[in-house]
Write a protein that binds this DNA or RNA. Structure first.
Lengths: 383, 383
DNA sequence: TTGAAAGCGCTACCAG
DNA sequence: CTGGTAGCGCTTTCAA
């Protein structure tokens, strides 16, 4: 082993082509098949011959069968692809996506398949990169409706598992009972006595707009699970006698700073909401900070709820009331489905359960609303 | 697009083989070359012909050139592989690894190359999976010395970038000035007046042993950066007149619970250490909790330091004094080197700077040591 | 502008 | 146990 390491750092012998199975076969004086067998079916030849072949191969600097060629021949890539957000790198900054990957990776290890992270460029690129990815199946994670990458995968006749969205026929769907989650939040807040609520949602439509959301925009939302969460929320609220029209909705990028900004905007409305429902924990965590900047105490002056139960939610101050979803579990189930599809067995859709986790960020509304500090802007946010 | 989606969900026409370039060529009545050109070199044929070819292909359900075949022909995989820990899924539970991946992913997107996560089984498997991975280059992240996967990659003559360790000739190294980091911690603590220190290190050798570490074990440590951090610490301590022999070292798995256990063990020694140096933030965060369980206040009764500056370090209570390393930056630099290697240009080693970040987990040692509660065990840890 | 020929490097099959 | 043959599906000369 040590020699080959040194070798590979050295100069490749001038003029010599990269050795292949044929090179080795010729050197040993056997056929290509036999050399192939030496690597892949040791029981098909005598140990001596095998050893002789392997030794010659080593001497020639033959690195073993070329994976590309073998895979072409076998018709299997030995890898599954995963489609994340537009910018692959964003996914790693998102706890929920990372947890999902952890689960998916677990199944890939079990199956000894590699996991290919496919970077999705914007627009047409997105489809072409999927067309060129060397994978046996595709897992699409939380993509907006009508994303061309999903169609591209389907065009290639690859088995596709869609997680969270979009819902597309001819794919296996793995998602959550988002609607139930929304409903649970509504019931919890209504039971505490809240009547004036506001909602913070992540980017609904990719047109760069942020701010207040009306019904039209809501129904044009690109993400399946956003629509579901909101629909559940509305159902629950209306069941409790709180008209949906009284609920303000603010749309922001899905990060904490944006969540804080949304809170600042919503909390200066009159009458001020007594509860902020964020449909992601990131936004909720930011909202708590935003409220604090305005001098409001959570939960005494304001209740805040999240969605997802990312690890940070439990550790936050105060610990966040949120809707737990099986983050890692979603990944393992997606992996299960992927490999079922690959084996040709049934891969039914999976709707994973959610659960309201009541922590300390929610409480009954204050008897009389606290005043809001007006001397703060977002500046000190990261301190 | 819509039709093809429906199609692919339907039954594949019985007996019909999967269409290839040749199928389409025959149907249109042109050569395979021309069909290939229709996809890859639109300028090589008339728009009309191209459109006719593409239309026929669509009609036949031809999904475009097969990536596997194209790649074999071109000799490029269009992907770089990354080797993480034994269990791929563990990596996603480790903030430092995730941040590294974020950086690496960023460069892969820029280059429009896929990122292949290669699951490393134990033992021989580790090498074989590397031998079979279809990638153009390999990035090995924080692997122990003499890991067979690195040799396997080198045997395949793939360009290799090693991050953190092991240091192997014929590879490009991207790492940190770990030694300087260790030294900085030592100086900081010595300057505060600490004299009795203990150290908590992650798994040094994979033999399942935990607990007190002697010099022999220390020098047998498998990870390059652990050795460096400790060497720097020793240097700094000795320069401050604190003999290395007085320093207790405890080895544990790299997670918070284990860190708490290490702290419980170390803090019941007599004389009790006034400062705990952990060589990872995970261990340090756990150590703080462990100390607290014993009724000790950090930093009043005990100082604790970490290493890495993962995001949680700043958010912890108290915020952790630690050595910051450019987590994401390490990933982008590794990516830069990888693509430089792929282009055949120079890819020099990179030693990234570290920086001591003093927060609130360190303070001068207490005038008189507080008593330790003896009625607690690790049970309530996760509460 | 188009096409025929020649592989990329490998493994499945079947005969010996 | 060994070897010849026949591709996997594509792209790249080079000639027409």
């Amino acid at each position: 082993m040590a020699e080959s390491v040194k070798q590979s750092g050295g100069v490749r012998e001038r003029g010599t082509r990269k050795p292949t199975l044929a090179t080795v076969a010729e050197a040993v004086g056997v056929s290509r098949t036999t050399v192939s067998n030496a690597y892949n079916r040791p029981d098909q030849l005598t140990p001596e011959l095998r050893e002789r072949i392997l030794a010659t191969a080593r001497g020639l600097g033959y690195p073993g069968p070329d994976p590309g060629a073998r895979r072409l021949r076998k018709g299997r890539a030995g890898a599954v692809g995963v489609l994340l957000t537009e910018r692959l790198s964003y996914a790693f900054a998102d706890s929920a996506a990372v947890a999902f990957l952890e689960g998916l990776a677990r199944r890939c290890e079990d199956a000894a398949e590699a996991l290919v992270l496919i970077p999705l460029g914007r627009g047409d690129e997105a489809a072409s990169v999927v067309r060129e990815a060397f994978v046996d199946a595709i897992c699409a994670y939380s993509l907006p409706d009508r994303h061309p990458a999903v169609d591209a995968a389907l065009d290639r006749r690859l088995p596709v598992v869609v997680v969270d969205g979009p819902r597309v026929t001819a794919t296996t769907f793995v998602g959550l009972d988002d609607r139930e989650g929304g409903r649970a939040v509504a019931e919890h807040l209504a039971a505490l006595g809240h009547e004036r609520l506001a909602v913070i949602v992540p980017t609904l439509v990719f047109d760069g707009r942020e701010g207040r959301v009306d019904d039209a925009r809501l129904s044009a939302a690109s993400y399946h699970n956003d629509r579901e969460r909101l629909a559940g929320l509305r159902q629950g609220l209306e069941a409790a006698g709180i008209p949906w029209q009284t609920v303000l909705i603010e749309e922001r990028s899905n990060n904490q700073e944006a969540g804080a900004g949304a809170a600042r905007s919503l909390l200066t409305e009159t009458p001020r909401p007594t509860a902020l429902v964020a449909t992601t924990d990131q936004l909720a965590l930011g909202a708590v900070r935003g409220a604090r900047e305005l001098g409001l105490d959570v939960p005494a002056d304001l209740s805040v709820t999240g969605f997802d139960d990312i690890p940070e939610a439990a550790r936050a101050q105060p610990p966040l009331t949120t809707v737990r979803q099986p983050l890692v579990g979603k990944g393992t189930v997606a992996g299960d489905r992927l490999f079922e599809l690959l084996e040709g067995s049934e891969a039914p859709d999976a709707l994973l359960p959610v659960e309201l986790v009541v922590r300390d960020s929610t409480a009954p509304p204050p008897a009389s609303p606290a005043p809001v500090r007006t001397d703060v802007r977002g500046s000190g946010f990261l301190a």
